[in-house]
Design a protein around this nucleic acid. Structure first.
Lengths: 219, 219
DNA sequence: ACTCATTCGGGAACGCCGTTCGCGAACACC
DNA sequence: GGTGTTCGCGAACGGCGTTCCCGAATGAGT
């Protein structure tokens, strides 16, 4: 199979009718739509309407909707503003996670894409390079460093997703059965855990991430 | 809003025409279909065909496709076979993760559901109760224990998903751009990381999970 | 045995989706 | 102006989740 990723499929051959739009424009329109109405609203027809064109035209810039989703993810990954590697590795990685969380809270559709599809584009590759640079002096072997990168992405996305769900009304749907389970009385630890303090304090994002990274990469 | 979860919506009022199927049957059919052809094949029409009935009939047992997905997840969560809590907490949690990984490798559609939707049903609640029981002697406060449960689920699902992708052909699509980035020469750490040994050894599942849990819950 | 309220089964339809086909239009080059 | 090539995109295909609605099936009451 000729698995050529989306990011290498560009060729501007000067011949023929010139395109009226660019892949970047299509991606930007999709991101704007997703920011405004969520991932399910990102259909080929809706994105095309956003651009004032027909749905079929998008296939001149993108092979499929999945390709478009990959382009959206990598485009947002281009927004990292990372300092030059140097100094201790833990603060370096923490900064990456902090910025990742900000990006995901700003683009509520991003966690789902990061969690379920893991293709790396140009910006994602730059990010991985940065993480490896931060860890360049670290004695862990390569496999563990790559895994640390994967865990950072996954954990940041999952925690951001929880924050987003807690902020919206999705919270009750998740806890609805829990409330019933408590009153049923067959879950003593669960009951005492959820009825002790008035509200269970959630550990801070940075605390959680740094603990996980310390566990993974030694101290 | 009257957020009544799926698992409490049952009422067998003896009046009227009796149902020809049960919610458990519908769930089992959906799981069988997903095991055989993947999550995208689980459409209301396909599941109905699996049962030899019409698509509209399913709505007598399930409010929506999303409800059905939640039922599938919780049904599989009923397959955990956990020993009575006791002894050190780390082996207790590790056993939970090991069984979770096995379930996810057996049901390739499960990681995606666990990662993107986090509603707890009866079996999920039992699992949480078990984890809290294992941690009952642990000095960490409640918030951190609940977070440990979330991290266990997320991490297990993410690692299982990576294993599944590596096993299928999805691997090349993900790494296709990486190969190009290496030859382009602008990513020195990435290049040395991916061209050193003949093949980068991935850390074992149990090693990774135990490191993360140790970092999160102290040693 | 008959009525009746109540529930179930499911064909038909609605609106949306991703994607493909094919053709007229628009350009660069000669 | 001709020609080769690319672009825009209306139309159509098959599939999707979901709702409507009505005939069929049942248990309860009498």
């Amino acid at each position: 199979m000729e698995t050529v990723p989306v990011w290498l499929r560009d060729r501007r051959s000067g011949v023929g009718r010139p395109a009226e739009r660019s892949r970047a424009e299509v991606t930007a329109a999709a991101i704007a739509l997703a920011d405004r109405e969520g991932l399910p609203a990102v259909s080929m027809r809706r994105v095309a309407a956003e651009l004032g064109t027909g749905a079929a035209s998008l296939y001149r810039y993108v092979d499929s909707r999945d390709d478009l989703l990959d382009l959206m993810t990598d485009e947002v990954a281009g927004a990292y503003r990372l300092p030059a590697p140097g100094g201790a590795w833990l603060p370096g990685l923490l900064e990456v996670c902090r910025q990742g969380r900000d990006l995901m809270l700003r683009h509520g559709w991003l966690p789902e894409l990061v969690l379920t599809r893991s293709a790396l584009g140009p910006h994602g590759t730059d990010l991985l390079e940065h993480v490896l640079a931060v860890l360049s002096e670290h004695p862990a072997d390569t496999g563990r460093k790559l895994e640390a990168f994967a865990v950072m992405s996954t954990l940041t996305a999952a925690l951001a997703l929880h924050e987003l769900n807690a902020a919206s009304g999705t919270r009750q749907r998740q806890g609805a059965y829990l409330a019933h389970a408590i009153t049923a009385g067959r879950h003593p630890h669960l009951t005492s855990a959820l009825t002790g303090d008035p509200l269970v304090p959630a550990p801070s994002f940075e605390d959680t991430v740094s603990r996980v990274l310390l566990g993974l990469l030694g101290e």
